[in-house]
Design a binder for these strands. Structure first.
Lengths: 250, 250
DNA sequence: CGACGCTTTGACACAACTCAACAACCGTGG
DNA sequence: CCACGGTTGTTGAGTTGTGTCAAAGCGTCG
């Protein structure tokens, strides 16, 4: 509910309860905001060194351009997500990021990130948790591309997106706004746009899910989950004792 | 060359030069070693809480079992790799890990990991770098599954594996030992074992690469890279100044 | 020796791709 | 106001890459 510290604070609070000072630290990180027009490329594959960002509002996507002419979207970024955190330590960016809608981001320098770990290890751990969760999403995505057919894959994608949006309060129970085109879905799911269209029709005809007019409606979550082989992630907070264990050692 | 600190030290040294004390710290982490027989499952999908490990010798793989009966191998682990580091903070393991050959690992508790970040931030950053690099591999893998055909995908896989093995000194210039079966390749590359066989034959007939008798020989690296659209990762060390920047701030 | 795991090959089936055409829906400018 | 081009969505017909099924070859090991 509290917006102090932005949507990322809301997300991290799911993991560990953040103290006043940690909330403030998060809020400070996001004090300067940059506006990105739709289509703007924030990070480009091959950039020599880049910062990380926190997405305040709008949607984006990180993707790779392949030498065979294809494009693979790694993940869509929604408000409250960290951008480029994974690759700040790499010498060159291994992927691009661009804004899919008008968006607002806050820049976070590598040095700021390092300070957080030094001064607020608790908050640092929460950020690492969010990063782990993001990577778990990427890994699920990988499994989808490798071993699920088009229908399962598409169903799984929307269920996952739904859960992520819920974490930051951007989805109602069975419905959410979704500014993606069928071309974008295709590049994310490793299919052709034409086939995505056919799959969406099937989902609609089976009365499982509707994707229309930038809005997704889940009509039968249970059957959809069964079809996709979807397993709910566990977002319950872990006990703080686990994180602080190292203080009491040796 | 120096084996102190194990193969992981060799790998991390590519990133930043580690001090004596940091080397010692790494060596201490690996002081206790556990032997894993071939096929042993070290981490199982759904485990409630698990530690991280460092793989000393042998090969392993992390994978997901899907409800549709399929299996997707996320990544193969080779000596010097961290295992399960990505998901230590998650409440339940999102994937399994098992030993593909007889193997030796060292267990690293979460609390030990946290202490490293507190006491040896430099070393912690090096570990984060290795983690980032591993994730970059996963992301490339994702792009392969989504947007490369069977031939490109297989070629790309072997080139990447070759580079990873070189980082820990386990590959000669054009040749390396590889204890994988065609079934394992299939589950990693999202293909059927039968089709993998056809692809391998094609690579052999085109005199690009041979996979036989647990040994891979690269016959024409240049043409293979062109076919796969492979881009060499940059492993040059970044300047230490970047990492230490936060010490001199505010 | 036979049993088993892994590899290899052929014939056929099917999921997903490509090409081509058209329909709906914009915002823009005449 | 309507005509317009551009983008996105929809559908059909034919092609192709990859999966499935079946069977045989070959090491290895008990």
């Amino acid at each position: 509910m509290t917006q102090e510290g932005g949507l990322i604070a809301k997300k991290l609070n799911t993991f560990v309860r953040l103290s006043e000072r940690e909330q403030e630290c998060l809020a400070e990180l996001q004090s300067t905001s940059v506006h990105l027009p739709q289509g703007k490329e924030l990070i480009s594959q091959g950039d020599r060194r880049h910062d990380a960002y926190i997405l305040q509002s709008g949607w984006g996507c990180s993707f790779k351009l392949l030498s065979n002419g294809g494009r693979q979207i790694i993940t869509f970024a929604i408000p409250g997500d960290c951008i480029g955190l994974r690759s700040v330590l790499l010498r060159t960016a291994d992927h691009s990021f661009s804004a899919l809608t008008d968006a607002v981001v806050s820049r976070v320098a590598v040095s700021q990130m390092m300070s957080i770990f030094a001064e607020f290890p608790h908050l640092g751990a929460a950020i690492l948790w969010a990063t782990s969760r993001d990577e778990a999403v990427v890994v699920e995505h990988l499994a989808s591309l490798g071993r699920r057919d088009a229908l399962e894959r598409t169903a799984h994608f929307f269920l996952e997106l739904h859960d992520r949006l819920r974490l930051v309060g951007l989805a109602k129970n069975a419905e959410f706004a979704c500014p993606l085109s069928q071309y974008l879905l295709a590049d994310a799911l490793g299919l052709s746009a034409i086939h995505i269209n056919r799959v969406l029709r099937q989902l609609r005809e089976r009365e499982l899910l509707t994707f229309h007019d930038h809005k997704v409606v889940v009509h039968d979550a249970e059957r959809l989950k069964a079809l996709a082989g979807y397993e709910q992630p566990e977002d319950s907070p872990i006990v703080d004792r686990d994180l602080d264990a190292h203080k009491h050692r040796s």
